[in-house]
Amino acid sequence: MDISKLTDVKKVDLCKKYFLIGACFLPLVWIVNTFWFFSDAFCKPINAHRRQIRKYVIASIVGSIFWIIVLSAWEIFFQHYRAQGLVWTDFLTFVFPTGRV
């Protein structure tokens, strides 16, 4: 769909729903929400509706960054200890690299 043809009220509603969907452990939906409504949130004159859109877009950005940090930290932590050959890392490894018995 093309949001440039929507009214501001419907834009706010759509942005809010996308934010709520992203809250169900779906930061990728938040990223899409950010890119989709970024121009409406920051590149147009401000009004009551755009202020709400801006709020949801900023919340989506913060949430996405949070999840990216969590995922990166976990993966760095895990790969470090997997290389050391700890036992609990074997249970959490989904794909073993070539050469490992």
């Binding site: 995922l71 976990w74 993966e75 895990f78 790969q79 997997r82 959490l92 490894t93 989904f94 794909v95 073993f96 690299p97 070539t98």
Partner: peptide
């Protein structure tokens, strides 16, 4: 040959 952990993958 990419080692992936279960939580990250799913």
């Amino acid at each position: 040959s990419i080692p992936v952990s279960v939580p990250t993958f799913f």
